[in-house]
Computed example of a mutant assay.
Amino acid sequence: MTPNRRPIIIRRKKVIHRHHGGSWKIALADFMTALMALFLVMWILSQADQQQREAVSEYFRTPLLTAITGGEGSAQSANVIPGGGPDPVHSDGERARIDLRTQTRPSEQQRRAFRDLQQRIETAIDADPDLRQLRQQLRFDMTPEGLRIQLFDTEQRPMFALGSDRVAPYMRDLLRTMAPLLNELPNDLSIGGHTDNLAYLNGYRGYSNWELSSDRANASRRELVSGGLNPAKLLRVSGFADRVVMPETEASDPINRRIELLVLFRQVAERIRSPGLLNGAGTPSPIGHQSIQQADTAPMERFTRSLQQALGTEQPGP
């Protein structure tokens, strides 16, 4: 080797092949198991009737802890004060709160009756060629108060004359068609009127959207009664002016000019009839006339005595 030539160094990288352990097989097995369970559930639902599907739906609405413990206990309470039971899953200490939840939650039978009413109304409207054109101006939905039937205005087909409570002929026919169907259920009825935010020239000092919404709700009541609705079913007629705007709409949108019919749940109607009672079940309110009479009058007495001393008119004590 000559002294001017540098040595040639060859570096070889050693590759070590490790076994992957087959973890992908476990992931694939889990995926196939979940897929098989999904198809199994889909097959079972396809074989079940409507009543069985509703039962399954009601089961999944129930919270897991409630289903396990058989009721709500202090462990589920949002209040930091215990419910009163010695056991966290014991429900006796929260009996009043559980009763309130039970009363405000409608039964599946009530919901089914309201859905049947909706179907009968839709069938009656579809059977009439004149009313069929109003189908797009109706909306049905279930609310915590009951079945809500909303009748909307459009620019092409308003339900009332502009700025008036005079009912349009097709609106009159629609209300009178619905009246006998509403009689089929024993539930009470609430009627609410709504307007857009276009105000009158005299503002709120004279006739305003408050009066207009109330008058339109009352005009709808008259048409329903004329169509055969039992007047005893009417529990509330009210006007909301432009204060309740439909979601994702402007206050000036014609859709906000609407009439709202509420077929009330029985529990809701009881609470409306008994506004001074808790739960609508005969429990008096803790704030009553007696507690007002028993208010502490000592501060007023001390003020009166100090004033008399300053004026020199204090009377000797007993």
Rank of each mutant, 00 (worst) to 15 (best):
M1H: 10
P3R: 15
R5F: 09
I8E: 11
I9P: 07
I16N: 08
H17S: 02
H19C: 13
G21L: 04
G21S: 06
G22P: 01
W24E: 13
W24A: 03
L28F: 10
A29F: 10
T33F: 10
A34V: 12
A34W: 06
A34L: 15
M36W: 00
I44D: 00
I44E: 01
D49F: 03
R53M: 13
E58F: 02
Y59M: 11
T66E: 10
A67R: 11
I68D: 04
G71V: 13
G73H: 07
G73R: 07
S77G: 12
S77Y: 08
A78S: 12
N79A: 14
G85C: 09
P86G: 08
D87F: 14
P88H: 05
V89L: 07
H90W: 07
S91K: 11
S91L: 00
D92K: 07
A96Y: 01
A96S: 14
R97K: 13
R97F: 02
D99H: 04
R101I: 08
R101W: 06
T102A: 08
Q103H: 12
R105I: 05
R105Q: 12
E108K: 09
E108L: 13
R111V: 05
R111L: 15
R112W: 10
D116L: 14
E122K: 10
E122T: 06
T123I: 06
I125F: 15
D126V: 05
A127V: 02
D130A: 09
R132V: 09
R132M: 07
R135F: 05
R135N: 09
Q137F: 03
L138A: 15
R139V: 04
R139W: 05
F140V: 12
T143L: 01
E145M: 14
L147M: 11
L147F: 11
Q150H: 10
F152G: 02
D153I: 00
E155Y: 01
R157F: 03
P158L: 02
F160W: 11
A161C: 02
D165A: 15
A168C: 04
A168Q: 08
M171S: 02
R176T: 12
A179K: 13
L182Q: 01
N183F: 07
N187M: 03
D188W: 03
S190L: 14
S190F: 00
T195G: 04
D196H: 05
Y200C: 01
N202W: 00
G203Q: 11
S208M: 03
L212R: 15
N218K: 08
R222W: 04
L224R: 01
V225A: 04
S226L: 15
S226M: 06
S226Q: 10
G227F: 12
L229E: 02
K233E: 03
K233Q: 15
V237Q: 09
V237A: 12
G239E: 04
A241V: 06
D242P: 04
M246Y: 09
P247E: 00
P247L: 07
T249S: 05
E250T: 07
R257P: 00
R257N: 14
E260C: 11
L262C: 10
R266P: 01
E270I: 13
R271M: 14
S274A: 14
T283G: 01
T283P: 00
P286D: 13
P286K: 06
I287W: 11
G288A: 10
Q290L: 13
Q294Y: 08
D296T: 13
E301C: 06
E301S: 03
F303V: 14
Q308I: 00
Q315V: 13
P318K: 14
